[in-house]
Measured scan of single mutants.
Amino acid sequence: MPVRRGHVAPQNTFLDTIIRKFEGQSRKFIIANARVENCAVIYCNDGFCELCGYSRAEVMQRPCTCDFLHGPRTQRRAAAQIAQALLGAEERKVEIAFYRKDGSCFLCLVDVVPVKNEDGAVIMFILNFEVVMEKDMVGSPAHDTNHRGPPTSWLAPGRAKTFRLKLPALLALTARESSVRSGGAGGAGAPGAVVVDVDLTPAAPSSESLALDEVTAMDNHVAGLGPAEERRALVGPGSPPRSAPGQLPSPRAHSLNPDASGSSCSLARTRSRESCASVRRASSADDIEAMRAGVLPPPPRHASTGAMHPLRSGLLNSTSDSDLVRYRTISKIPQITLNFVDLKGDPFLASPTSDREIIAPKIKERTHNVTEKVTQVLSLGADVLPEYKLQAPRIHRWTILHYSPFKAVWDWLILLLVIYTAVFTPYSAAFLLKETEEGPPATECGYACQPLAVVDLIVDIMFIVDILINFRTTYVNANEEVVSHPGRIAVHYFKGWFLIDMVAAIPFDLLI
């Protein structure tokens, strides 16, 4: 008679799926529990143990900040960024110097990925580790590398530091407007667009060049630039800015003055950032001319202004700041037409079709709590990747769950009947059967004279019903998954307890 339990259901295979997918890609990662103190490590794979030199037993239950890997060259700011990422709910990448158990130093890129439950609360953290440099290539500990984003994938490793954006290309926007319009339909740009040429040739750093990471940081200074100062900065030398009595002219307006920039070969870094931020506020060169004239017309309804409409929906549905990093990277690809469009465009503009998908598509409701890094690593669709929660398995109709209350009560009843059979069957065979043979035949009273025979008949009927119930009862397979398919249940029961239950259900007393 089957006594099969499996009270692990309803099970959740999400954690096993993450481990299996990460292991298949030869990654070095740990999984931490966000619900406990210090976000203790609950799993670390073999790749991480080989990377740091510690065994799994030495890593388990330690804080996922990996303070046991810190050393003299470990930056405090990087460690603080990892700790801050564990307090938030967004994906974050941090470069930090770690030390192995043998004392060797290596520069590592740590990717902190939160995993949320159905309520939107962070319950786990996945920390992925990628070695960037070994100890002989690690720089000085005073050099802070965590304020910069990861290198873009479309640049060669040897040319990542030679990417320079020439400031004269930004200063000569109005001069290039006529050349853009003359391109017409034969050019790649839309009317009114501004073409910015980027020099990728390796050259020595000069005062006129600005690194790509500095251009990325310009967006942080746009908020500090007032509207009046932006307007004066875009007017140009024809209309000098008016300053109040006793007030000095704005240095932001002076930063885009061609006369002032041409007199000296070098520009201050602050002026460069502010000038680029001011130019980015204009949607095209037409807006710059309109600002000089004193009238700013409404933005025209053409394809170039609607190019950012799908980007707005993608940004609203993005799951991490990696989408913004990807957008900034692609927006700086050289030799393309940049349409400086305000994100607050007309909502009635139709979304044009684009061959290049900048932001990841909208994630469906079932995966809105899973970050983009987890979705990318697992390579699963929205119909396959579940949320991290207890999910009731989908069972067929008329199927009994093996952990249901009805099955528990039924098993206790069958257990009592088995005990009765084990006690009274030998007793009936030894004593009652002998008395029946010696006594007179009682054929007239039937079952009324033999109450134990009636009980034995009921017990046999219950055993037959138990066999039928076992054909529709779920079970737990070797992978700790609840199986509810009727065919698989029948095959599993035939290979197991079916023969024993059938022999126990045969009414031998009635056959004798």
Rank of each mutant, 00 (worst) to 15 (best):
residue 203 A to S: 06
residue 238 G to W: 15
residue 88 G to V: 12
residue 368 H to Y: 14
residue 135 K to M: 05
residue 13 T to L: 10
residue 270 T to S: 11
residue 300 P to D: 14
residue 103 G to Q: 07
residue 362 K to Q: 07
residue 358 I to L: 07
residue 349 L to P: 09
residue 35 R to E: 13
residue 131 V to K: 08
residue 97 A to T: 12
residue 288 I to R: 11
residue 158 G to R: 07
residue 154 W to F: 12
residue 186 G to A: 12
residue 78 A to L: 03
residue 247 Q to S: 15
residue 311 L to V: 12
residue 212 L to W: 09
residue 222 V to Y: 15
residue 291 M to A: 15
residue 375 T to M: 04
residue 63 P to D: 06
residue 298 P to S: 13
residue 187 G to R: 06
residue 249 P to W: 09
residue 260 A to L: 12
residue 316 L to S: 05
residue 309 H to E: 11
residue 353 T to I: 14
residue 290 A to P: 12
residue 17 T to I: 07
residue 67 D to W: 01
residue 295 V to C: 15
residue 192 G to S: 05
residue 257 N to C: 15
residue 61 Q to A: 11
residue 2 P to I: 02
residue 133 M to I: 12
residue 240 P to M: 15
residue 262 G to E: 07
residue 270 T to M: 07
residue 116 K to P: 12
residue 175 A to R: 15
residue 57 A to L: 07
residue 141 P to Y: 06
residue 202 P to Q: 06
residue 150 P to M: 07
residue 60 M to C: 05
residue 365 E to K: 14
residue 92 R to H: 13
residue 386 P to H: 03
residue 264 S to T: 07
residue 305 T to Y: 05
residue 111 D to A: 06
residue 217 A to F: 14
residue 218 M to T: 04
residue 173 L to T: 15
residue 312 R to C: 14
residue 40 A to C: 11
residue 276 C to L: 08
residue 177 E to K: 09
residue 149 G to W: 06
residue 78 A to H: 13
residue 201 T to H: 14
residue 266 S to P: 05
residue 221 H to P: 10
residue 188 A to E: 08
residue 289 E to Q: 06
residue 271 R to S: 10
residue 40 A to P: 15
residue 146 N to R: 13
residue 172 A to V: 01
residue 107 L to Y: 15
residue 355 D to C: 15
residue 368 H to D: 05
residue 126 I to N: 01
residue 221 H to S: 15
residue 274 E to G: 08
residue 65 T to W: 09
residue 324 L to D: 10
residue 5 R to F: 07
residue 378 L to N: 03
residue 99 Y to M: 01
residue 42 I to H: 01
residue 168 P to E: 13
residue 369 N to E: 06
residue 26 S to T: 06
residue 359 I to T: 04
residue 176 R to W: 03
residue 47 G to Q: 11
residue 256 L to H: 13
residue 33 N to G: 06
residue 126 I to V: 12
residue 311 L to A: 12
residue 176 R to F: 03
residue 121 A to Q: 12
residue 210 L to K: 01
residue 127 L to V: 09
residue 239 S to Y: 07
residue 200 L to G: 15
residue 206 S to F: 06
residue 268 A to S: 08
residue 311 L to M: 14
residue 262 G to A: 05
residue 193 A to L: 01
residue 179 S to A: 13
residue 103 G to E: 14
residue 363 I to K: 07
residue 44 C to I: 01
residue 214 E to S: 06
residue 220 N to C: 08
residue 123 I to M: 05
residue 224 G to C: 05
residue 124 M to F: 13
residue 93 K to M: 09
residue 360 A to P: 15
residue 26 S to R: 13
residue 289 E to C: 07
residue 164 R to K: 13
residue 348 F to Y: 11
residue 13 T to W: 14
residue 330 I to P: 14
residue 367 T to E: 09
residue 63 P to T: 13
residue 22 F to C: 07
residue 264 S to W: 14
residue 316 L to P: 08
residue 334 P to E: 15
residue 236 G to P: 07
residue 57 A to G: 14
residue 334 P to I: 01
residue 112 V to L: 09
residue 175 A to F: 01
residue 90 E to I: 08
residue 381 G to V: 08
residue 17 T to R: 10
residue 350 A to Y: 01
residue 256 L to Y: 06
residue 203 A to P: 15
residue 386 P to S: 03
residue 18 I to L: 14
residue 146 N to L: 15
residue 298 P to E: 09
residue 261 S to N: 05
residue 144 D to F: 10
residue 17 T to Q: 08
residue 98 F to N: 01
residue 163 F to D: 09
residue 313 S to F: 09
residue 291 M to Y: 05
residue 272 S to I: 07
residue 35 R to D: 14
residue 178 S to W: 03
residue 172 A to N: 08
residue 268 A to H: 07
residue 360 A to I: 10
residue 172 A to T: 07
residue 98 F to Q: 01
residue 360 A to S: 04
residue 184 G to I: 14
residue 206 S to N: 09
residue 118 E to S: 08
residue 85 A to Y: 01
residue 110 V to E: 01
residue 195 V to F: 03
residue 386 P to W: 05
residue 45 N to M: 01
residue 102 D to Q: 05
residue 185 A to R: 06
residue 259 D to L: 08
residue 311 L to C: 05
residue 249 P to F: 07
residue 294 G to V: 09
residue 35 R to N: 08
residue 339 N to E: 07
residue 58 E to W: 09
residue 111 D to G: 08
